[in-house]
Design a protein around this nucleic acid. Sequence first.
DNA 1: CGGGTATTTGACGACTGTCAACGCCAGTGG
DNA 2: CCACTGGCGTTGACAGTCGTCAAATACCCG
Lengths: 248, 248
Amino acid sequence: MPKNKLTELGAASTRCAVCPIREKALFQVVAEDYLAEAESRRTAQYRLPARTSLYQEAAQASMAYTLFEGWILLYRTHFDGSRQGLRIALPGDFVGYAPASDATYSHGAMAITDVTVCGFRQADMHAMIDNHTDIARQISNIQSGYLATCESNVLGLGRKSAEQRIAHAVADLYHRLDLRAEVDGASCSMPFPLTQEMLGELTGLTPVHTNRVLRKLRAEGILRCERQRAEIQDLARLVELGGYHSVG
Amino acid sequence: MPKNKLTELGAASTRCAVCPIREKALFQVVAEDYLAEAESRRTAQYRLPARTSLYQEAAQASMAYTLFEGWILLYRTHFDGSRQGLRIALPGDFVGYAPASDATYSHGAMAITDVTVCGFRQADMHAMIDNHTDIARQISNIQSGYLATCESNVLGLGRKSAEQRIAHAVADLYHRLDLRAEVDGASCSMPFPLTQEMLGELTGLTPVHTNRVLRKLRAEGILRCERQRAEIQDLARLVELGGYHSVG
DNA sequence: CGGGTATTTGACGACTGTCAACGCCAGTGG
DNA sequence: CCACTGGCGTTGACAGTCGTCAAATACCCG
């Protein structure tokens, strides 16, 4: 396991220079004065190189993070050592929150790419929740969204074929990147820093079988995953195959 | 699909006669005067016969429920018609909550046994969240717990064998029933109203294979599931086999 | 250019699903 | 009281998806 290598960038500015819009993902319903409080409680920005751990499962949950830049894999480890991916966090996502009643992380988080995050102390999050009902409601909404996503994953792992699960995972990524204006609509291509092994972890497959399915999807003219970039050649078929329904 | 057959029992009493303690599962950190408000917002108790639907996935989420008596299966349906179980709700559990930002249920809920629930209007839940930070925090805590459980299910479906998944599911039920003082500690037996088909839905298996695994577990002297009742003959091995860790 | 990582491919086997049939049991109605 | 009926559990034969093992190839970075 790679060791945690947080690099503090110093105190954060009042507005995040990297991606000011993304930040609204966490505080999008919060009035301006609340935003000011959130900013003041924010401890710092951190950079994290690819393949390093942001936090480890079952560890003390001291911080929560808003992801500014890069991709993060949330996962859980089986007792035989294999990992099961839970979700890919993309810029704007809020990860690592733990309620005061359970101060440990329920999963691990590993940087897929180089990553920039903004840290909040859990205690500060809890204080904000107690002081501002808008924030409490927003956190609750975020949790509900993650829960619905997690339920989709349960459905997929329990009932879908390998091909359907991979199609679903890629369609989901494409949709979420589209919301962030990170896809090339003309060629239907998107950044894709996942290795096939990571995609397998996410879909409950071995790397070998992941590879076979990807080749099949390419042969069928649906999807083409290359180094660092994926091109969707038939989005309609991909969505139908994976049974993907965007959650808005 | 069985039709919804809610039967209203009339206005609820201030204290729930059926199981006063259970109710604290929802409002356990809430001060007394808040509890009074929660009671006043509660609309009514309902009874629901076994095998009927409490709410359907993707339907308008008008109500949330605290389960007083009986078992409920939460599930999602695959487009081929097969169902994937998400969680068994037991007395005291709070189900069907949807945030104001997404007014539809993310899953369906079917009564396994005859069931008594207490209904709350979603709008009232949202109002309580806005007016009482303690309640907001409690709802958030409940969501976090369900999310952690859901993550465990993802890990199980993605990485565990059929035998391990069934062992995990039964160990989880035993532990949760133990907390509710519904197990017979002497014989290590518990009520078990699930059919093998339902247990298969929960663990991502076909009824036939569920049966084979149950027979194997019985042959190994670990577990014995009979009509309406299950007896755990070797709890330690069951827990180890399923890799079960109670969440407290 | 060299070494490590990621991808690709083949052979084989195990776990789990599918199909089909039968038995058991409870409830029902004659 | 007994036959009937429907649901659930049980069992066998077989097939297919997917995992395992092993090796070769391609790619990236220093």
